[in-house]
């Protein structure tokens, strides 16, 4: 693409030239909106972390270490994956992905502070702890859904909120089971669905470029 039209050439643009410009705007805006970002795997990774940590903390050896080890491994894995993904990305950041990234970063900081504070005060693993975690996860998912206007993610968020509400009316075992069920649907199943959608979108983008 060259700038063959001089700056003074706007005096008598014909209809064909104007339509050509309008088409160019539409095409370029669509190009800018295209994204190669993948997030489905992150949901699955965190889902597996919650399930493994919960089961290990319930029945495994060295139970006190379960959450710390699982959280540490998952944080390292997800961070490394995201750095790799960012290096491979094409060099453009969409406004929506920047907004979403900020929301999830703030959420991650808040939840880590909450977990550390709960661990130090010895409140980790109780009914209120699990319920609050469910509400945290529900809120960030519903916020993402509102930004992306994506009803499927709203459902994932609502499942977390439902688990959080249920946990308030049951004992620790019941809250743990509610947490695991919400993890399965809102992290694992939703993550797989997201990966399928991301793959479809990439195929469509490839077809458009072909």
């Amino acid at each position: 693409m060259t700038d063959s039209h001089s700056d003074s050439q706007t005096s008598s643009p014909d209809s064909a030239q104007l339509l050509d410009r309008l088409n160019l705007i539409e095409q370029m805006v669509a190009e800018g909106r295209q994204t190669t970002e993948r997030h489905g795997w992150i949901f699955i990774a965190w889902g597996l972390c919650y399930i493994v940590a919960t089961l290990w903390a319930s029945v495994g050896p060295y139970r006190a270490w379960a959450w710390w080890v699982c959280l540490g491994v998952t944080i390292a894995f997800v961070t490394a994956g995201q750095i790799r993904q960012r290096r491979k990305s094409a060099g453009a950041v969409s406004t929506k992905s920047h907004t979403l990234g900020s929301v999830w970063t703030v959420f991650s900081v808040a939840i880590m502070l909450y977990v550390f504070a709960a661990a130090i005060s010895n409140h980790i693993g109780g009914v209120m702890f699990l319920s609050t975690i469910c509400f945290f996860l529900g809120t960030v998912n519903v916020t993402s859904a509102a930004i992306y206007r994506w009803p499927m993610q709203s459902i994932a968020g609502l499942i977390w909120w439902a688990a959080g509400c249920y946990a308030q009316f049951t004992d620790v075992n019941g809250a743990g089971i509610a947490f695991l069920i919400a993890t399965f649907f809102s992290q694992i199943i939703f993550g797989i669905y997201m990966m399928v959608m991301e793959r479809r979108r990439e195929q469509q983008q490839r077809l458009q470029h072909a």
């Binding site: 700038d3 063959s4 643009p13 190009e31 800018g32 060099g91 406004t95």
Partner: peptide, 26 residues
């Protein structure tokens, strides 16, 4: 606007419209 009417400048502005930022190489 003569600044925008240039084809390449118009393309760049349209590309940047839905983006937070974009690199020169992109």
């Amino acid at each position: 606007d003569p600044i925008i009417h240039g084809k390449l400048r118009l393309a760049v502005l349209s590309l940047l419209l839905p983006l937070e930022e974009a690199e020169f190489t992109w």
